[in-house]
Design a binder for these strands. Structure first.
Ligand code: FES
Ligand code: FES
Lengths: 130, 130
DNA sequence: ACTGAATGATACTAAACTTGTATCATTTAA
DNA sequence: TTAAATGATACAAGTTTAGTATCATTCAGT
């Protein structure tokens, strides 16, 4: 039951490195020091760019920069970009027609807990993590 | 990223049924109405008994009863019995010798969030869910 | 005693998700 | 023109979750 997957952890460390560096960093430059397989980091950085957390420049000398200051990038943003939006309360029967949807005993409670967790992960920013 | 797995959901519904029934209920008696595969429910009930949430009696006429009143059975207890203790912050590198353990940026933060979630799931009791 | 209904314990298969790998296309600076 | 970089995808391997199958053990009723 992981809140933080390995990819999220990689993402956080990579972003922290980018923040430190100031300038742009390439995936290769990030993977090496962090001990992350290069293709994996590439995939993660691509997700972060798609999610609007970094901006990328292609071609020779290209790389990644933060799209906004560290203080405005939250752990929640990072999780959302890498794994998709945090959803604790997805119906355990795969959505669609859940015959218990109305009488579900847990749905509301779990949704409430999810909201609190969301608050927490949004409160932690990259600035706190550097 | 599921806080509640299908098995936990099954467990909650089964326990609610046991609570309603007052007396003992067999796995067969529980599985049918809830629409859960019988062997699956059996496995879950066994886990709940091992976890001290229900007490079982074997043999003909046997079945399960709550080991304590619904108000004293929390969602946290149920999750722990069925899936093992809730751990959000397991080191994403599988524990052992994590070369980042000391410098890990996330560990403390995630542990704090985990504690809050634990508080929440412990606050919700079977009585609330029935 | 015997039988049948029930749980205890385990081993196994199948499906879903996470993690890591591999390619090819596109862009850009030198 | 070339080499270094990202974009986009497809694939393989590993891990976790979900479901199935068996056999052993207990116990009430006859
Ligand atoms: S199980 Fe589908 S909503 Fe609760
Ligand atoms: S990655 Fe191992 S402790 Fe953070």
């Amino acid at each position: 039951m992981k809140l933080i997957t390995r990819e999220v952890d990689y993402a956080v460390r990579a972003l922290a490195a980018v923040a430190r560096a100031g300038g742009g960093l390439s995936a290769a430059g990030l993977a090496g020091p962090a001990g992350v397989p290069r293709p994996v980091l590439r995939k993660i950085m691509q997700a972060l760019s798609r999610g609007g957390i970094t901006r990328s420049s292609r071609g020779r000398g290209g790389g990644f920069v933060l799209a906004r200051p560290p203080r405005r990038i939250s752990l929640g943003d990072i999780i959302a970009a890498v794994r998709g939006p945090l959803k604790f309360n997805d119906c355990v029967f795969g959505g669609a027609l859940c015959h218990n949807h109305r009488t579900c005993l847990l749905r509301g409670r779990v949704a409430a807990i999810e909201r609190k967790v969301l608050d927490e992960v949004r409160r932690v920013t990259l600035a706190d993590l550097s």
